[in-house]
Structure formats: structure tokens, C-alpha cells
């Protein structure tokens, strides 16, 4: 067992892929890698084998801070009654583009 315990694993990186110019980077999955350069190389090979990417981000998984499901109410509900933030809220004369 001691042999196995010694075998740690490389850190985990989250991979974000931009598939077209001007588009957002979208989360694709994760890879293990010893360092940023290798993380990029691995991400390229794993998540862009079919030319899916024109740009890649890799972020150490531990560096991501996320909301918790229990935050859902306080974090996001208050935005839902501010309909004036949405263009549909406004009436404009018909036919106007």
C-alpha cells in the first residue's frame, strides 16, 4: 500500500473553450496536469480533438469559488423582479426596429 500512497495525482484544472471568435469561453470539463503549460497541452488534446477551440483557458479547480445551491434564493431571486432591466419591459411604436 505504501507504494500506492506515494503515487499522488496531478492537480485538477477546469477547462474553458472558446469555439469562435468573439464568443465566450465555455466550461468543457477538467484535466489533470502537473503545471499550467501541461494543463494547456492536455486540454488542447482532450477537448479540441475536432477543432472545437480557437482559445483555451485552464484554471486550477481549487481556485474557483462558486455559489452554493442554498445561495440560490438570496443571490439570484432579487434580480428576477427588476424587469426594467430587460428590453421587453419597454413599449415602442410598432414597426420600429
Amino acid at each position: 500500500m505504501s507504494e500506492k500512497n506515494k503515487d499522488s495525482q496531478w492537480p485538477l484544472w477546469e477547462v474553458f473553450v472558446q469555439s469562435e471568435q468573439g464568443g465566450p469561453h465555455i466550461h468543457a470539463g477538467s484535466v489533470h496536469a502537473p503545471d499550467p503549460e501541461m494543463a494547456l497541452q492536455n486540454a488542447r488534446d482532450v477537448y479540441s480533438r475536432r477543432n472545437e477551440a480557437i482559445s483555451l483557458w485552464v484554471v486550477p479547480s481549487v481556485s474557483i469559488t462558486a455559489t452554493m445551491p442554498s445561495d440560490q434564493g438570496p443571490f439570484f431571486d432579487p434580480a428576477s423582479d427588476k424587469i426594467y432591466r430587460h428590453p421587453q419591459f419597454y413599449h415602442v411604436p410598432k414597426g420600429l426596429k
Binding site: P11, P34, D35, V62
Partner: peptide, 21 residues
């Protein structure tokens, strides 16, 4: 592959490219 994985880890540690990880 064990020695390869260890080598990459050792390199990362030496070069402190994983500072915050």
C-alpha cells in the same frame, strides 16, 4: 509511468509554477 508522473511533479515544485495549488 510512475517515475514520469513524479518527475513532472518535482519539476513543478522546483519551478514553483504551482504556487497556489
Amino acid at each position: 509511468g510512475a517515475w514520469v508522473r513524479e518527475a513532472a511533479e518535482a519539476y513543478a515544485a522546483k519551478h514553483k509554477i504551482n504556487r497556489k495549488i
